[in-house]
Simulated scan of single mutants.
Amino acid sequence: MPRTTSGSATEQAYRHVKRLLLDGSLPGGSMTSEGEIAEQLGVSRTPVREAFLRLETEGLLRLYPKRGALVVPVAPGEADDVLDARLLVEAHAAQAVVRLSDTELATLVALLRDLVTAQEAAVADGNVAEYATLDARFHAEIVAAGGNGLLTGFHATLRERQQRMIAHSVRWDPGRATTFVDGHRGLVDALELRDTRTYLRRLHRHLDDARVGL
């Protein structure tokens, strides 16, 4: 087996811990440690320490010498800021999506319905991490289909924050995931009919549902 380099071990640790942060496995306010993560990955503490420093610069961890790392909770008001930004971007994207060709729209709708089906399966399995990932991808696909590269890139910067907030919300109240899945299904139905007005009304309600309890 090839020897793992320090750089690749650091990247492995970074991706592993970040996934735990985004999917809610390490919720805001909880503590973790270099030793705990090193044991999970079978690596030394050095690459984990480097990964922790990187995550601290991203505002996800706060490091305390000899005590470990605190998972920084979502800041007050951050959820509202993210959801307001998403509303603007996703509403704009929808107006472009309904102008796609029949073939392009049908392809997008099929993909979105597959994602909704996968979300339902994740909810049934109680897999919060998978649901949060699928939720973020659902909205990202609609924005990407809008064809504005700058807005797609901006939306991507919101995706990690969105994924973390949704995972937190669903973990504390699993029933909310069912409401979100129903909301997604309604959004797809409106896009398929090229009904922008209904889509925007449902998007407002969907994001308002997400806002509650965050």
Rank of each mutant, 00 (worst) to 15 (best):
Q119W: 01
H206R: 01
E90M: 06
P47A: 09
S101C: 04
E11L: 14
S25Y: 02
D84G: 08
Y131A: 12
G59L: 10
Y199D: 00
G149A: 10
T10P: 03
L115H: 08
F138D: 01
L100T: 03
D208Q: 14
G147T: 04
V97S: 01
D84T: 14
T157P: 00
A110N: 10
T196F: 10
G35I: 04
S33I: 02
A156F: 08
A13P: 06
R185E: 12
E141I: 00
T178K: 13
L83V: 03
A140K: 11
I37S: 05
R49L: 12
R19N: 13
R113G: 01
T117D: 15
V89R: 06
R54M: 11
G183C: 07
A38G: 07
A79K: 03
R45N: 11
G35Q: 12
G35W: 05
G7P: 01
E141L: 00
R176N: 11
M165Y: 03
H168V: 11
R67E: 13
L193A: 15
A110M: 11
A13R: 06
D102W: 02
E78I: 06
H168C: 06
A167T: 09
T4C: 09
R164S: 09
V109I: 13
L207Y: 00
R15V: 12
A177Y: 03
N127K: 10
K18T: 10
L108V: 08
L26S: 05
F138R: 04
L191R: 00
T196G: 09
L193D: 13
A110K: 13
M31A: 03
E56F: 07
R54I: 05
V188M: 05
D80T: 13
S8V: 14
T57Y: 09
A94T: 00
L158V: 07
H206K: 01
G28V: 04
S33Q: 01
R211W: 01
H139G: 09
T117Y: 06
E130D: 14
I37D: 03
E78L: 14
K66M: 12
L22N: 06
K18P: 00
F154T: 13
E192T: 09
L63A: 07
V188R: 05
E192I: 07
F154G: 11
H139P: 04
L105G: 02
F138K: 03
